[in-house]
Nucleic acid binder design. Sequence first.
DNA 1: GCAGTACATCGACCAATGTCAATCTAAGGA
DNA 2: TCCTTAGATTGACATTGGTCGATGTACTGC
Lengths: 119, 119
Amino acid sequence: MTFTQILPLTDISRADACSTPPTRAATSPEHADALAHSLKALADPARLRIISIVSAHANQEACVCDLTDQLTLSQPTISHHLKVLVEAGFLSRAKRGTWSYYSLVPGSLGAVARVISAI
Amino acid sequence: MTFTQILPLTDISRADACSTPPTRAATSPEHADALAHSLKALADPARLRIISIVSAHANQEACVCDLTDQLTLSQPTISHHLKVLVEAGFLSRAKRGTWSYYSLVPGSLGAVARVISAI
DNA sequence: GCAGTACATCGACCAATGTCAATCTAAGGA
DNA sequence: TCCTTAGATTGACATTGGTCGATGTACTGC
């Protein structure tokens, strides 16, 4: 048995008597910033529905008309949300002829889910 | 082999030729609203760090002084973030004497992670 | 009761964000 | 070449949200 197990010196040295000691290090500010950036992209009802509609389609790919059909939002607004999701790495865009197709980036949602569980 | 597998009638009946058929139903607007509300509470660097600090402590409980020590934010701002996290169901508050202790609600992060994966 | 401490609430300010109308760009078809 | 259609971009607006100083509240110790 070591000395620190008998006398918890780290507690005594603390100025705040209310505190319990941490069992591990907390997340770094940089890590928190990065995760918050990803979560901000997801934290909107319209964008969640867009992701849901896209991933519900065959090949997890949908064109913009599928979204304007189902969402009661203007076309520029939907285009704006799509841009946010592409820049955050959740969707990718493919233009074929006149139409733009958006697909779910494989593993992107799972990655965020895993990070949340590990906070 | 059924008839619809040979002739995808749902496609022919659609007005939009660009569209591929959905393989399942998309998330309901209500569901998207609820998930967005939870994600908004998480989508802030300060709040992610608060959750991390709390869950890094013994018993996944920390007092406010632990947070004011590590975050370069004013006490009212930290109090505001704590309120957001409590109302979103990620933290719970216990007042003992002069001090307020915040604990992680067990399973709350895992629940959100699971819902994200299932969008 | 009084002073001090810990934390919550209030009010105000500024930045970020969701939304739409108007416009622009690019691709197809006649 | 011109017109139509799909979708992106721009600009403006209203709302939300993060932050802090000032103040309020509740508990402790003297």
